[in-house]
Design a protein around this nucleic acid. Structure first.
Lengths: 233, 233
DNA sequence: GTAATGATAACTGTCAACAGATTGATGGAT
DNA sequence: ATCCATCAATCTGTTGACAGTTATCATTAC
């Protein structure tokens, strides 16, 4: 495992001196973890990292403590820090939290909806329908992500937005994540339409229910996929 | 290594060598912040702390980075770390998140309710009623806290539990928090009874709504209290 | 061949020191 | 009296080094 490779990303950041080395390192490590370049379970060697980034171990330790609080890594005394590995149970728990947050975002958004936003969201769902017919998951995924992000970003609660992102990010640590991403494109987008209608109606309660249910059903699909996969093993 | 510090709490922890100095410091700092011994807005001086606890600055810096990720302090480059200060808007946002999480906890709990737990929760509400009649807030507050904690702790989702606590803790950073704590004891406990009935019925949807509404109404009381206070100024 | 053992290497925990930035004070000019 | 420049003190950012712990691996005994 030769971690001795140059990181262009970090160099970009270190040029800007207004950002501390620690936070730059933290962002870079987070990127490495979320993109999967640092796989769940692997140990993060402080000395290797300090060589790789040309810094001392101090800032790296600070960055990893921050990542630990964010739940992306695990620190074991005298043994090191490990990229956190999510079990199926962890992932299911996260879906519950995410459903709660997303439902709340839907409620808030319904109560402050604008015509322009509704048009944009409708356009996205139409586009997803078109892509879903072709069954192209690689095209569907970013659209789906953007749709959800736009909803939560527009709900007017920055705390909620930050928390939502935290949990969506954490799902990247779940190895079997790819299982659930494949199926049910058309089904999922039908739920999107129900959400749209609720948002358009301005009924917060109804919006909360539809948004909550959308994630709850995704959780069901995850569980079903995992069970199916386990049976096939 | 003689740890010459005024903090009995810290000494308790350092005796156990399985816990790193950093995490012991973090717990202690968190305690100081949540109890208000370190007030919102004040700067945390690394050198003073290292003298106080008899350590070097390294572990303290690591602990503060962790607290930053938890949202309890704010780090400003080259200026230091400050105990985070929550605005009214921040507090309101947190209530929304808390409502979402608490509602979800109610749903999960309703679907796994036991007779013993229901009896215990009922007992607590009865006790709160008795205390509320006397209008004794100091007695009501810990009971109320315990009631909510028992619900979230019993819902079976540890991730949700951790997040819920995170946000309840963050509310300690809100200076005007005391405003909302005083009023509506009897009203609040009437909402508790509605929650109890929903939990007893085993209807997850209904439990989620009642639990969500309980926090949403608390948020309204907070806003009303803040507005009233502003008018009286 | 396998398991216990002990030496060695590698790594983390902590510390003390240096470099750079910020703050506040001092003194002079207007 | 006010404003600005300069400077000293204080604090943070970062580094390199040392101590203690864990992991590795060859050796030995069975």
């Amino acid at each position: 495992m030769s971690i001795v490779s140059d990181s262009a990303h970090l160099n970009d950041l270190t040029v800007v001196k207004s950002v501390s080395l620690t936070s730059a390192l933290e962002k870079e490590l987070e990127r490495l973890i979320l993109t999967g370049e640092l796989e769940p379970g692997v140990r993060i060697n402080e000395i290797h990292l300090s060589n790789r980034f040309g810094t001392s171990r101090g800032p790296i330790r600070e960055a990893t403590r921050s990542l630990e609080a964010k739940g992306l890594v695990e620190v074991v005394r005298n043994r090191g820090v490990f990229v956190r590995r999510l079990s199926v149970e962890d992932a299911v728990e996260i879906y519950d939290v995410r459903a709660a947050l997303f439902g709340q975002a839907g409620r808030l958004l319904a109560e402050r909806m604008t015509d322009g936003l509704l048009a944009e969201l409708t356009r996205m769902v139409d586009e997803m329908d078109a892509v879903a017919e072709r069954g192209s998951f690689d095209d569907y995924y970013p659209l789906n992500l953007g749709f959800h992000n736009l909803i939560v970003s527009s709900c007017g609660n920055r705390t909620l937005l930050a928390e939502y992102h935290r949990f969506v990010n954490k799902l990247h640590l779940f190895r079997a994540r790819a299982l659930v991403q494949g199926g049910g494109l058309a089904v999922s987008n039908r739920e999107h339409r129900a959400m749209l209608e609720a948002l358009a109606s301005g009924d917060g309660e109804r919006a909360q229910v539809t948004h909550w249910r959308h994630v709850a059903l995704a959780k069901r699909r995850l569980i079903a996929a995992v069970d199916g996969h386990a049976r096939n093993d």
